[in-house]
Design a protein around this nucleic acid. Structure first.
Lengths: 166, 166
DNA sequence: CATACATATATGCAATTGCATCCATTTTGA
DNA sequence: TCAAAATGGATGCAATTGCATATATGTATG
């Protein structure tokens, strides 16, 4: 499976990235780092609070549901969800436990590989994804969308994305 | 004390911010939200990993040490640290337990208010702050600083800051 | 000035996360 | 072909976090 090759390559490239202990960031870089951390934390806290106020589960649940809903046949392998959501493997495994317990997803065997599983979203899961989006989307709009024009948002998103590509 | 007035004002303003459930974010806003979350998470994970690889404590410890080192007389009240670092009160309280146990800070009574405490950074704490910065700074530079020019960083930091002001 | 309310900090307990490791299955390659 | 290495996923246990509440003290109000 192609994923194997990719993974080994990724790991190998990560291993040789030992920090150069001699360099120091510029004041501008440091300001950007702090701004990035603070902005994300404050917005995330505000949005998570809106979800909690509406008696909805935390964002991680939404991320998983969204990936499943948009996936073909409403199913993915755990490692695919992991890659999309950036959740750690063991955290995802347990998040899926909770979501399965809540009836939002189901796990089934993956016949082509005895180690694997399918994770499928249930009807209740689809309904929950939509219910969460009602609140989540409104919250994103209120805390973020209202603060800037779409053109600025797009440009800013592009600049942020460049920080982690290449 | 001024802090009282501020707090009540902040709480009051937060309480009336009920989400408008009817609005939905634009595609641009949603892209920005996702970019912000992903970029912050990926960079933070990379940097925390560098710290761990150097056998240093997590970033929260640095944030507290930094606030104390820069503060007059190397001391602050817990609620001041809380405000600067965005740590939750109970989390800070326990973080300070651990840091005190590690000999990096000390708690002393605050005579002017029987409820309060001083948190002071020790010599070991100052040394640790510098030791962490060696690695942390290099890591910021490598993961972030190298990706863009200072002018771009400054501009980007300004745009991010605008998202949480007003 | 007494009573109710606010503030500063701490803490018990449950839920989540991190870490290491385990298990079962592929895949690789001598 | 078969042992060694890699993968996909789960799990035991410790550390951290979240949540509610406790404790002590300060401030305001009738």
């Amino acid at each position: 499976m192609l994923a194997i090759t990719v993974k080994m390559h990724v790991i190998a490239s990560m291993l040789d990235s030992s920090p150069d202990q001699t360099r120091t960031p510029s004041a501008a870089t440091t300001r950007l780092w702090i701004a990035l951390m603070r902005t994300q934390r404050i917005l995330l806290a505000a949005i998570e609070q809106d979800l909690k106020a509406a008696d909805l589960p935390p964002l991680g649940w939404y991320d998983v549901l969204w990936e499943l809903v948009r996936a073909e046949k409403g199913r993915l392998r755990p490692f695919e969800i992991e890659a999309h959501t950036l959740l750690a493997q063991h955290n995802l495994s347990r998040l899926l436990d909770r979501m399965e317990e809540a009836g939002l997803v189901r796990r089934e065997v993956f016949p082509q590989d005895g180690r694997g599983r399918w994770v499928l979203v249930t009807e209740a899961g689809r309904a929950m994804q939509q219910r969460i989006w009602t609140v989540y989307g409104a919250s994103i709009e209120r805390h973020l969308g209202e603060k800037l024009a779409d053109a600025d948002a797009d440009q800013l998103a592009g600049q942020l994305a460049r920080l982690i590509r290449g």
